[in-house]
Every structure is written in C-alpha cells, then in structure tokens.
Design a binder for these strands. Structure first.
Lengths: 336, 336
DNA sequence: CACCGACTTGCACGCGCGTGCAACAATAAT
DNA sequence: ATTATTGTTGCACGCGCGTGCAAGTCGGTG
C-alpha cells in the first residue's frame, strides 16, 4: 500500500512504469486484454498500479485510439415509464462490457441535429436512438449533418438504409395477441395507436389489422392519440366511447403500448363507468412494471430487452450489420 | 458551400485555419466565448467552419484543458418513475448549458466503487448521485477510493462533509402535509417509509412524526417497505390492515413517496376492498405523472426539480458550495 | 514623426495514451 | 552449437486542442 494519498494530481502510466521498473508501454499492455506481455510483467505492473491507485485515462485513450467506447443514448419521450426500463437495461449491460453511455435528450427535429452534433463532438462510437417518435426524415437530416460511425434504432423499426434497427418482432407479437383475442371470442376490436407521424415504423397497427382481416374478413378501425402518454389516451378513448351503447361499442381496445392502454383503462373505468374486461377488454405492449399491479393486471406483450441489448453489443463489436427483430413474450393477465 | 462531402475523416481546426487564412489558435478563439479576437476574424473563421462542417472536438479539448464538461449521473433505483422525470430534467438543462451527461448504474455497494471509478476514468467534472438508497458509508468508500472533483447528492440529504446536497426541503413539505391532514380532521396516521437503510437521509419521516407530536401530543407509528416500489408496498400495507376493524385502522397513510403511496392505494382498494379516501386516506411525495391520473388523484408534494437543477448548475460553475434545500409545492387532490 | 496603450495574432509545449515497427530475449528446431 | 521461431519489450510519432507568453498591428496623442 502506497502512502501517497496526497495525489491530488492524477497518476499516469509513466508513474506506474517507474514504480514497476518497466516502460510506459508495458504498463499499457498490462491493461490490454490480449496484449503480448509476460505474466510476471503484467503482475508487477498491476501491483504497482494498485498501490498507486492508477486507472487508465479513457479520455486520452480515446483521443489516441479513435475509439471512445462511448455510446450516445438518444431519447425524446420521457413520459413513458418503459423508457426507464430500456435505459436501465442498456446502461447496465453496456457498462458491464466497457461501454459508457451518454444520455442525450432530443425533443424535436430542431434538437435533432444539435443532439447528434453534441454526440459526435464527444466522438461517440455509436448513437442509439430509443424512441418511437423519431421519423425517418429527422434521422436522415441528422445523419447527413454530422457523420456518426453508427446509428442504431432501438426498440423500433426503421427503413433508413444507413441505419440499423434492433426491435421486438411486432408481427409475431401482434398475431399472438390477435389469436388470443379471437380465442376469447372478441370480434369488434379497435386499434388505439400513438401519434400518426409521417413514418412511424411500429408495424403493430398494420400487422394487427391485416392479420385480423385475413382471419375474420373484417376491417379493424383505428384511432390515434396525440402523444404516447396516458392523458391524451384518456381523452381519445372517452371521445370514442361517448354516446355509444353496448352494441355499437368495441369489445376490445388493442393498444400500441402499455401507457396508452392504461389511459384507455382509466377512461373506460373512471370516465365511462364501465368495467374491464367485462364491458371492454384491453391489451397493451411493453409490460411496464405498472401493468402487473393489481389496479391494471394488463394483458400485454413483453419485449425481449436483454436479448435486444445483447444484439446491440454485437453491433457495436462489428459482429452484426443487419436489422434484427426478436420475438418477445405474450403475457395474459386479467384485462382480456 | 464546400464540396468536400467525402470527408469521412474528421475536419480539424487546422483545416479551418487554412481555409480561413488564419492560424489554428485563432480558430480556437473564434469558438471561445470571451476570447480576444476581432469581429472580422471570427466571422471569417465561423464561415469557413460552417462550410467545412467543423465542430471542435470536445474530447481533445478535455484532454488539453483538464475540463471534460461531463457530468456523471449515478442512479440505482430504476423502479421509481420519478427517476425518469429527474433524469429528463437534468439532462435537458445540463446539455443546454454545455454539459454532457454520462449515465451510470450503481446497484449496490459492490458497484459503487466500480461506478465511481468508471466515471473518474472519463474525467467527469462532477458526479451527481440521484437516488434515495445510497447510504453515507457507500459514498465515503467511493469518495476515498477514487478522487472526484465534485460529488453532488441530488434530491436527497447527506451529512457527508465531502459532499454537497441539493434537495427539496422535506421539513417544510411534511409540515404542510401534516397541516393539511389536521385541517381535514385526520387523527390516526401511520407513516409508510421505504427501506430502513442505515442512514437514509430523507427527513420526511422524522419531521412528520415530530411535528405531529408537537401539534397533537400523539406518536405516529411507522412501518417500512423493503424497496421503493409498489409491489412491496402492497404487501406491507396488506399486512398492516389485515385483521383490523375500522376502529383500529389508521385513517391516513402518509407515504414517503408516490410510488409507495400508489402501492398503498392498490392494497387498500384491491386487497382490502376499502375506499380511498373514505375508509383510509393517502398522501405521497414527488408528484409523478401517474399521481394525476384519474385512477389515483393522489394528494402529494412536488419537488422543485427545475430550481434544483439550476442550483446544480451553480455548483458546477463554482458559484455555490453549500447544501441547498428548496421548497416545493403541495398538491391537494382527492386521496385526502 | 515618434511613441504608448489597447487590441489582436502566432507559437512552443504539453495533456495521457495507442500504433506500428524494430530490437531484444527466450525457447525450439536443425 | 547455430539458426529459426516465438514471445516480449522499448520507442518515435501523433491524436486535436488549450495555456501562457511574446510578437505584431492599429489608431491616436504630444
């Protein structure tokens, strides 16, 4: 144990090299995974480093190597609790594999280039867009304005060719939900989607509508909320159900995600005074923590976040270069 | 407009200098706020920079200047939706003022030093701890193991002298809640707190209990959940109310925060079949988005997050060096 | 016309580490 | 014992920019 606890100034590889009696480059090798270095040298260096409290400076390392080991996590939609789950899982897995995560807020297209610019100024190795409300134009602009090494779209599809999407397989998911509803005898669904952006690439709505038509021959009507939040969902569903009797009402609301489904349930219960699922059933998507609470018990579909994060690692390490859609898990609770 | 759109390799200050016919240092000055540079030089440089698509490399800048303009946001408790609100507000305000935010997960004390180490390896200018479950020992260890320039505790108190806390003023808040309850005629409260860590420095519980004793002469019992999450709160409250008749029940549950309050409400309603507030009233703390939903309509207290974030900026800019406690806003809804 | 202050610009050096190659030591093959 | 092979180590140079100082410019005054 070294007594130099007064090292307010940081200790560099040179200090460790001097202490261990080797060159600075040998010190660097000791900290590099597959470096060509003898075991005893490495041990001596590590011991010296520990005594001095040395840890490689990642910032200097980045500058020299042109790899920052930093990932920008770009998000806009902070109202959806599911984002918290995604952020948590991603940061934990990325850090555990040596990647740092830079959190970036990007509220609208105006911000977009600023956010990407800021990220690139930090030399991030990749930017991961987590959010449903980025349209492709925005991404294109962002990509054109500032070169990023990689742009990954997480938990959402994208048709931009310069982009790589890692998402839950919405088609499998929505078919499973549809099968479940058909099995339970529902026959008049309405699809409740989020904002109708130019190119929202969640295939949930179209898949559900097409599959339902194939199986029943009927066309499912759909409506949109103005935001991925429960407030607008409440308003929209209230407007939908207002002045309709039991015969003309939908018997199930298929929602694009859980937070909207929860708004729908609140509207059904507290605005209309109806029951879920007896009067109207509801399904969601994401399986946010609240969905399992006794108040909601929402039937939903869980995205395979961990598996998706693993694929993200593959992308970052260059082992994967194509889009990915992974199956998740259907979760039947009490709202259907 | 330059036609060099093929600049896969990044454009540096030297390139801009050449294009503008000045030296590299003049380019740097053009991008520095209060630098000594003539207006025409600056304009020429900015024009050249724009044409070339140049933006200063923050990583290299950090290395040279020993200021990274990076803040580590350290969190452990991702179950509480309030964290999302805090993260969103902080990142937005920090980025708008030129600070980048590094998101770090720190689940237990084992992680603590690893997280702080990782942060220091990135040369963060400060680490901001956002979370209620970090005990002071953990912080002390972390501080000792790796020197950080600044350690700020956000939305929580701390008595560690090497630390700076920015929080909502719990004393004012809890007195206001108590006054409200007394005014409404409640007289048998129970305080529902989170996990009883060694040194949880939320003064909410002690303040409430002391103030209630001062005003009524009675001692408020308190119970703990095993985590800041609604699931454990449901279990704990169910256990509390089980086998008690209306006379021996509390008439109000004062909860340390909203997510626990929501669990309490779920237990009261769905486990016990009782009504809020007719049978038992509930109060929370934080005013998370869900608290305003028709399903809960929770009476709570909103933390002054924006003001707290502004103070954080003061701290980062060295204008503030002492602890801060700011008053928030009491919000009466329908659960009392 | 010389001179002084205020403003503006250029530059040597360093931040801490990576890369690629050359030199060297330790072992195996002939 | 000599050479080929593998393993290990040292080093010059550069990553892109900031700091502090010295040199340069300009306009105005006596």
């Amino acid at each position: 144990m070294a007594e130099s606890e007064d090292n307010t100034d940081s200790v560099t590889a040179d200090d460790v090299a001097a202490a261990a009696g080797v060159s600075r480059w040998t010190v660097a090798r000791a900290f590099k995974k597959d470096a060509s270095i003898s075991r005893q040298s490495r041990e001596r260096v590590i011991a010296a480093a520990e005594a001095l409290g040395y840890a490689p400076d990642l910032m200097a390392s980045s500058l020299a190597s042109d790899r920052s080991n930093l990932i920008a996590l770009i998000t806009n939609d902070f109202n959806n609790p599911h984002k918290l789950v995604l952020l948590e899982r991603l940061t934990r897995i990325l850090w555990s594999r040596g990647w740092g995560t830079l959190l970036v807020h990007m509220s609208d297209s105006e911000d977009a280039s600023a956010a990407l610019l800021a990220a690139s100024q930090r030399r991030v190795d990749a930017a991961v867009v987590i959010g449903t409300r980025f349209d492709d134009k925005m991404l294109e602009t962002a990509l054109g304005a500032r070169r990023l090494k990689k742009l990954v779209i997480f938990a959402r599809y994208s048709q931009n060719p310069n982009t790589l999407a890692i998402a839950c397989d919405d088609e499998i998911a929505m078919r499973q939900i549809a099968d479940h509803l058909l099995e339970r005898g529902y026959h008049r669904p309405v699809f409740l989607a989020g904002p109708d952006t130019q190119s929202a690439k969640l295939h949930r709505k179209s898949t559900f509508i097409e599959y339902w038509r194939d199986r029943t021959g009927t066309i499912v009507p759909s409506i949109n909320t103005s935001a991925y939040d429960f407030g607008p969902a409440i308003e929209r569903v209230t407007a939908l159900l207002q002045d309709r009797d039991a015969a003309s009402r939908p018997d199930v609301l298929v929602c694009e995600n859980d937070i909207i489904a929860i708004g729908a349930m609140d509207a059904i219960r507290y605005r209309m005074g109806l029951r879920v699922p007896q009067d109207i059933a509801v399904t969601g998507f994401d399986d946010i923590p609240l969905s399992s609470s006794p108040a909601y018990q929402l039937t939903t579909y869980r995205q395979p976040i961990t598996a998706m994060a693993e694929r993200l690692l593959d992308v970052l390490e260059g082992k994967l270069t194509g889009d990915v859609a992974l199956p998740g898990q259907f979760i039947a609770r009490l709202t259907t």
